[in-house]
Design a protein around this nucleic acid. Structure first.
Length: 643
DNA sequence: AGCACGCCGACT
DNA sequence: GTCGGCGTGCTC
């Protein structure tokens, strides 16, 4: 017998392997197998079995990795579809979908006699149902979770299973906690932050058909689930659904393909739907369903315009008088406050007083931030860390001076202002692990913290009941000028926070302290009118022909060799230009305008391909990438639909 | 992706 | 003379 094997290489080809007699009775489609490929030992995926091969000089399989097939036939098909959509090989996509529990290479099985689980063929059963694509929005996470519980029970009653996809490991843990009481026996969770032991136990539980709700991150969209009846996308607006490295697929797109193939419902859930989804609702490709709950009214809203604030010393401390008095009132009344500030560290810039040289990351060329807890300069891009030289390393004439604010500086300023207050920070420096994040959140929820300073990692687990002050100082840092989606992202975050806060706080005060006080969008925040905000933003995009009124994809080239990235990207531009494709905009379109930048110690180029719709971009990429070979030592990442 | 093969330039 | 650059082709 012959196995058709897909390998984790950028090769659009399937390779035949002879199955040795002793393995024939164990081999299954969807299993991983140990093979020798191009003189190297590697792992491949069995995508089909057959009696004969056209190829004459076949090698034999060297072993079977999985007892149970990790992919059903329909999942293999799904992976193939997603692979061709995102321009990677079948094998690369299958590799990206391997369950967390099976990712170690230790799982190679030596003893083939102890096989007792054999469920691989059960999922051949085809579901009868109807495909639907629905957006469901809520004002707060409590309403959302109650709705989840209701729809999960309904689905379970129909003897179907639910795949609940989360953007990150933190959300997986949040939902797990919320479901634990009611649904513990039915629940399994998967994430890279969970221990390997738990991931394994849960996979075992899923495979032995003892789980009805499967909660997990991105790659779980490829989990083999028998009788899947519903896919939920939690926080559908989150960018974390997109994989950062190649294959740069979007789990939301994969989930859509899966729902379509299985004739089931894809439920997109959000407290602040993305502009793209909202646009699709407007154009009737997604159905909007009204979530339960009442829209909270915004009261005691204060916009603190830093341009108008008179006291310079206060401004220097970055805490305005009005914020200071609101915090004092909180403390006096034994109430809590949450202060949102999105910049980590203490100083955000370090500059020589003489030559004006700024300390930069040698790997990324980004500006380093100072973190006083470590007493080190840190790159927020790649985590590069160095000590701060006393004298300027460039001119050796003067001291390095610290400018700008971060959460650590804010914390120390608040501690100076309110020595009696219990202040803590919730940022990646303070809580890099999810357990630590929950420790801080639980402490706050128990009333053991007066002021909590948090970055955007402030999740949905915070209980605002006793919080009488929510302040944000983050508007300017959230609105990233380099990204036209900065406004959407920052306001989506603010609306989410605002609605959660006003739904739970008994005596809410909301303060926005900013220099950007005349932003139009702020009015919609005060009115809690997210829909009008989206409409405003859509108008802006329409005028500038930006997505969703156009389709923007990116081609990334990376290498440790500058000339090689430059050459590769120039060659790519030439190929695009030779197509003479109508309505296709390449940026840059001139080979002399290629800009190489530093990223984590290597060199990178980013090319934009823009058109009226995705079809035009895809047809150009189809023609170029079919016979395209990425030059050696260069990494190419196709980022389809970059926004 | 890696690696081998093969064809041209600039060096001990 | 040969060492080494990288274009092309192959991997069951």
């Amino acid at each position: 017998m012959i196995a058709e094997v897909a390998v984790n290489r950028p090769i659009n080809k399937i390779f035949d392997y002879y199955i040795p007699d002793n393995l024939i009775k164990y081999i299954k489609i969807g299993q991983r197998v140990k093979i020798s490929f191009a003189n190297r030992k590697t792992i491949g995926f069995v995508v089909a079995l057959k009696e004969k091969s056209e190829f004459e000089k076949l090698s034999s399989l060297e072993g079977i990795v999985d007892i149970r097939a990790i992919y059903s036939k329909s999942l293999l098909k799904l992976a193939q579809k997603v692979a061709s959509y995102y321009y990677c090989s079948w094998g690369q996509m299958l590799e990206a979908g391997v369950p967390f529990a099976l990712k170690t290479k230790k799982s190679i099985i030596k003893n083939f006699e102890k096989i007792d689980i054999d469920m691989a063929d059960i999922s051949a059963k085809v579901e009868q149902g109807k495909f639907k694509d629905i957006l469901c929005s809520f004002y707060n996470s409590k309403d959302k979770v109650n709705y989840y519980k209701k729809i999960i029970k309904e689905t379970i009653n129909n003897k179907k299973k639910i795949l609940l996809l989360c953007p990150d490991a933190f959300s997986v843990e949040c939902l797990k906690r919320m479901f634990l009481e009611d649904l513990n026996d039915e629940l399994v969770t998967f994430s890279s932050q969970q221990s390997q032991k738990i991931n394994k136990e849960n996979l075992e539980k899923l495979y032995s058909n003892n789980a009805s709700i499967i909660i997990g991150t991105r790659s779980c969209v490829f989990l083999d689930i028998i009788n899947l009846g519903l896919i939920i996308l939690e926080q559908e607006e989150s960018e974390f659904y997109k994989r950062e490295d190649s294959p740069r697929y979007d789990a939301r797109q994969a989930a859509l393909f899966r729902a379509q193939a299985n004739n089931i419902t894809l439920l997109r859930v959000s407290l602040s739907p993305s502009l793209k989804t909202y646009y699709q609702v407007e154009n009737n490709s997604i159905t909007a369903e009204k979530g339960s709950g009442i829209k909270p009214k915004v009261t005691n809203y204060q916009l603190i315009d830093l341009n108008a604030e008179e006291d310079i010393t206060t401004r220097k401390k970055f805490i305005s008088y009005r914020l200071q008095s609101a915090l004092k009132k909180c403390l006096d009344n034994k109430k809590q406050a949450v202060i949102v500030f999105n910049r980590r560290g203490s100083a955000s810039i370090m500059k020589c007083q003489s030559c004006k040289e700024v300390l930069k990351c040698p790997r990324c060329e980004t500006i380093l931030s100072y973190h006083y807890d470590k007493a080190q300069a840190v790159c927020h891009q790649c985590n590069y860390t160095q000590s701060v030289p006393k004298m300027c390393p460039n001119c050796n004439k003067a001291y390095i001076k610290f400018y700008g604010y971060g959460t650590q500086k804010l914390e120390s300023n608040l501690a100076y202002m309110f020595p009696e207050a219990r202040i803590e920070r919730l940022d990646i420096d303070e809580a890099s692990k999810i357990k630590d994040r929950f420790k801080i959140i639980d402490k706050y929820n128990k009333g053991k913290i007066d002021f909590l300073i948090g970055t955007q990692i402030l999740g949905e687990a915070i209980d605002f009941t006793n919080t009488n002050c929510l302040a944000t100082l983050s508007l300017e840092s959230l609105i990233n000028q380099n990204d036209f989606r900065g406004l959407e992202k920052s306001f989506s975050f603010m609306f989410r926070l605002l609605n959660e806060y006003y739904s739970t706080s008994k005596e809410p005060n909301f303060l926005i302290q900013t220099f950007l006080s005349d932003l139009k969008a702020l009015k919609f925040l005060e009115a809690n009118d997210y829909k009008s905000f989206l409409a405003l933003e859509l108008n802006e995009r329409k005028a500038l022909k930006l997505p969703p009124y156009s389709s923007l994809s990116k081609i990334h080239f990376r290498s440790t060799n500058t000339t090689k990235v430059q050459k590769a990207s120039r060659d790519f531009i030439k190929r695009i230009n030779e197509l003479n494709a109508k309505d296709l905009i390449m940026n840059p379109d001139d080979i002399d305008e290629v800009e190489v930048y530093k990223q984590r110690g290597s060199f990178a180029v980013e090319l934009d391909i823009k058109a009226k719709d995705l079809k035009i971009v895809k047809s150009a990429l189809d023609t170029i990438l079919t016979d395209y070979k990425v030059p050696s030592q260069v990494l190419m990442v196709v980022e389809l639909e970059a926004v």
